[in-house]
Write a protein that binds this DNA or RNA. Structure first.
Lengths: 207, 207
DNA sequence: GTCTATAGTGGGATAGAC
DNA sequence: GTCTATCCCACTATAGAC
């Protein structure tokens, strides 16, 4: 995995052959395939690394901040920081992850552990905050925030601005909005809609 | 393109070789490559076909319905109908479209015409309806609905239920919710949030 | 400029010996 | 578990017909 990640970074995903990776790792081609079912499976290393660093990087943010907006924005920002080094060929990764049958898909069975770890991060951001929510929403909100995170990732992958500053601007704009919306959920007028959303989210999850 | 689409449908994308496609079309392999730079370029045929049929199929819906929810749901449903025959290999198509550098990406320069045509469909759904909106929202809403459409497509690609009934259920649940939300935009309490969203959407588009 | 035929190459993936 | 040898097929190259 280390060999693969190094070479991916040096030459890009497409130009890195499985033969080069196995050579670099000092094993035979067949042996590489014994451990990794396909070239795409090696991308899992990148995922796992980003996921792990995202968790570690978020610790200090979540320890420091108490306001919901600061916690959420912090967690989003940390992801952009840790993912940055691989932004150039993240598109290739993303392409492979986008296929539903791929084990790399963020919605796949195989990536459930990573997904749950990520959702847990957002749950921590919510739970440790000052946020007061409509009843029932507290349970589902982390999933919705994870989904929003996926949207930000999609934006980031397409973001060609220097240092991905457009993505950072998006986060800076979106977070206060989410904060405002979340606090509005307790208003009587809004409650009906919140209930509808919760019913929808739950029906999707159970099927 | 017809040969390719037929074979993709019969055996799937991976099991269809370029040789088989060129044979089926009665041309040489080299000639197939003369017109299509790669196997993936043939997917463009599918993309174009769905877009065209989506427009055509939506005409009768938009002529028949006047209520916003019915018009929007109709347009969403028509897409699921026309895309259905190719659902099995749609994942391959989607994979291709997901790469930011790909001309097939729905966000790319090259697919701007198709994207605008699609947005126009949603604009028609809004404009011909009974819907009353907060000022300013009428202009941006079609773009937001197109984005929602992309979300539904994402769900559809991952949907393994028979006849993609989960996607249809999603549409059936989401449309009334959107209708409700859209009508709420004129309420005083909600107005502030609507303005925030509009500012955000506009700032993203101009950059 | 459009097309055919044929002969490659490269690299992802696999079979099967050990 | 590790290897070598091989398959398969997307893709390229080329030479030439019309």
């Amino acid at each position: 995995m280390d060999s693969a990640l190094t070479l991916f970074r040096e030459r890009g995903y497409d130009k890195t052959t499985m033969r080069a990776i196995s050579d670099e790792a000092g094993v035979s081609l067949g042996n590489a395939y014994y451990y990794f079912g396909s070239k795409e499976h090696l991308i899992q290393a990148y995922y796992d690394r980003v996921q792990e660093e995202h968790e570690q990087g978020s610790v200090s943010v979540l320890a420091r901040e108490t306001e919901f907006a600061a916690r959420l924005g912090g967690v989003f920002d940390v992801w952009v920081d840790v993912a940055a080094p691989y932004h150039e060929f993240a598109g290739k990764f993303f392409k492979n992850a986008a296929e539903p049958t791929s084990p790399l898909s963020p919605f796949s069975e195989e990536s459930q552990p990573a997904r749950q770890a990520s959702v847990a991060l957002f749950r921590a951001a919510v739970d440790g905050s000052d946020l007061k929510l409509a009843t029932g929403l507290r349970e589902e909100l982390p999933d919705l925030l994870w989904l929003m995170h996926m949207g930000i990732v999609l934006f980031w992958v397409h973001d060609q601005s220097p240092s991905q500053e457009r993505t950072r601007a998006l986060i800076a704009h979106v977070v206060p909005l989410v904060d405002k919306l979340a606090r509005m959920t307790r208003l009587p007028v809004v409650r009906g809609v919140v209930t509808d959303v919760l019913v929808l989210v739950r029906s999707l999850r159970t099927a």
